[in-house]
């Protein structure tokens, strides 16, 4: 290896290392702080050192019983978060793949218009239409239900867009060969679209799971019942600047992280190397 190459390689590594520090730093800081007492955190702010109260804080969180009737427990919150996360992920993925299938393969006249209308919804995030969405949800009787938390987050145009771009790369002949082999619209969807889109599906599923999992403001509005607390809302309940609060943050990160690990091969392949 010649010197300029070594230099460049060193420089690349430096940039990557800085990037890793930038991304992992806050999590490490949170984790280390979660081993300190609430008093230390209140006095000296976040901590970069090991505090020795790991067990205290984490057991405090895991045995938490809060709320009016002590119904807000870690397990109940985890259950709610999972219902919301998986609900949002499943429905978003399902609607995305179906709408993209319709827009790309059924050449109805206004397909292009429909697609752009779907895409325009990106400009109206949930936060921008809280009041109206609340009205709709209320009139449908969705207040204080899981469905009420899930449904407004489901319309994610980005999923439709992702699938559409992929479907457009499929050669026309694939469809034609399938038609000549006796495939109808439903069969083509099941036998071709779903298996061919697996990597895409994994990526979209993870992204929308995180959107559902990390929701805060909307669940706060739509649910007043203690039984609907999610982990993210629990952080607020337990005190975000306290030691146990930090511990709950770390616990909250774990399930999406595990999901990402499980799907990483598929998901990253799609996001990085678009098919050759």
């Amino acid at each position: 290896m010649t010197t300029p190459q070594a230099l460049r390689s060193g420089y690349n590594h430096l940039v990557l290392i800085l990037g890793v520090i930038f991304l992992v730093g806050p999590i490490a800081l949170t984790f280390l702080s979660s081993t300190h007492t609430s008093a230390t955190l209140a006095r000296d702010s976040l901590q970069f050192s090991w505090g020795g109260h790991f067990l205290d804080n984490y057991s405090r969180v895991l045995t938490l019983e809060a709320g009016f009737t002590d119904s807000v427990t870690p397990l109940a919150m985890l259950k709610n978060s999972l219902i919301v996360g998986l609900g949002v992920a499943t429905l978003t993925t399902g609607f995305s793949i179906l709408s993209a299938y319709a827009v790309v393969f059924f050449r109805f006249k206004i397909a292009a218009l429909v697609f752009w209308l779907v895409l325009v919804t990106l400009l109206f995030p949930l936060e921008a239409r809280f009041v109206n969405t609340f009205e709709v949800a209320a009139s449908l009787g969705l207040i204080n239900t899981h469905a009420g938390i899930i449904l407004p987050a489901v319309a994610a145009a980005i999923g439709t867009f992702f699938y559409r771009q992929y479907f457009l790369t499929l050669p026309e002949e694939l469809l034609e060969a399938a038609i000549m082999d006796g495939t109808g619209p439903v069969k083509f969807f099941i036998d071709f679209i779903i298996p061919l889109s697996w990597p895409r599906t994994a990526a979209i599923f993870i992204i929308s799971f995180m959107i559902g999992w990390n929701q805060y403001l909307w669940p706060l509005m739509i649910s007043t019942d203690d039984s609907l607390y999610t982990l993210v809302r629990g952080i607020r309940l337990i005190g975000p600047t306290s030691g146990p609060g930090m511990a709950l943050v770390i616990i909250t990160i774990i399930p999406p992280f595990l999901l990402l690990l499980a799907f990483q091969k598929w998901a990253f392949n799609t996001l990085h190397v678009e098919q050759k």
């Binding site: 050669p171 002949e173 694939l174 034609e176 060969a177 399938a178 038609i179 000549m180 082999d181 006796g182 495939t183 071709f192």
Partner: peptide
């Protein structure tokens, strides 16, 4: 599918 014909495509169109 019911015409009793089979086609070989230019780019093969394999699944």
């Amino acid at each position: 599918a019911d015409r009793d014909v089979a086609m070989v495509f230019q780019n093969y169109a394999l699944y």
